[in-house]
Design a protein around this nucleic acid. Structure first.
Length: 258
DNA sequence: ATGACGTTTTTGAAACGA
């Protein structure tokens, strides 16, 4: 089975790209981020017609996350991370699909750093780590997929020296990601492709995609119960070159069936 | 250091992204 994560950067503006990609690659489970649409403007009918059940947590203008499942309905287990009742951003949704617990997340960008937005990012990361630790403690077969807004190492950014002070690469954020991995999660792409330059995002500016000036910030983390099933992982890079493309490319793992 | 581009919204200048 294939599980993919895709920051669409506007689910309605990007609908033709999303539907074409679903049709061509037929992923079994899809985590979407940056819907940029309120709850009642999610294109449910078009996604259903494409053969996918869906749950989503929308928000006007910003953020928004969804989980799609091919040929079935995701069973929602949570919306929003625990730990801050005042957090109004739609950045986390979780569902049981095909015997897996799938968490779809959109971690805050955090720029400019330092500042209030960076503090929010670090606090959100702490809440994610607390929740992720709980999933591991339950022994859940889980996948945490999404836009983490973190390049974990120098290998994950085209020019590390230029990004040292950026909220996506500052030491605190890389340390938070490393601590999450340290709980026992497997970074699927990096595990199957050690030492390889793999990017999932290319800026719209300065022909970044043409120059391959990219970042690896979209990740799929597997719990210990799921990691032995990992068979392949990759990025659908060509989607970034399509007409009206998102600045992110879909990123995926292939798991052996249960 | 800035801005390059692209999305969204009290439709047009501004906020946000990474």
């Amino acid at each position: 089975m294939r599980i993919a994560t895709f920051n669409v950067n506007g689910v309605n503006g990007r609908l033709p790209v999303l539907l074409r990609w679903l049709d061509e690659t037929e992923p079994d489970v899809v985590c979407l981020q940056e819907l940029k649409a309120p709850q009642d403007k999610f294109p449910h009918a078009a996604i259903e017609a494409a053969g996918y059940g869906a749950i989503w947590h929308g928000q006007k203008s910003w953020n928004g996350v969804a989980i799609l499942a091919r040929g079935c309905e995701p069973l929602e287990t949570r919306r929003g991370l625990p730990g801050d009742p005042d957090d109004s951003h739609s950045r986390y949704i979780e569902a049981a699909v095909d015997g897996l617990l799938v968490g779809c997340l959109y971690l805050p960008n955090g720029n400019p750093a330092p500042g209030a937005k960076f503090d929010y990012k670090l606090r959100w990361f702490e809440r994610l780590r607390a929740h992720a630790a709980g999933l591991l403690a339950q022994g859940a077969p889980a996948v945490l997929a999404g836009d983490y807004n973190v390049m974990p190492t120098d290998l994950d950014v085209y020019k590390p020296e230029r990004w040292l002070d950026d909220a996506l690469f500052r030491p605190e954020v890389r340390a938070a990601y490393a601590a999450l991995i340290g709980q026992g999660w497997t970074d699927a792409l990096r595990t199957l492709h050690p030492g390889e330059r793999i990017y999932t995002f290319w800026d719209y500016f300065r022909n970044a995609y043409g120059r391959d000036a990219g970042l690896r910030i979209d990740h799929l983390l597997l719990s210990p119960e799921v990691a032995p099933r990992l068979r392949a992982a990759g990025v659908d890079r060509d989607v970034r070159g399509w007409e009206k493309a998102s600045d992110h490319a879909p990123t995926w793992v292939e798991l052996t069936p249960r």
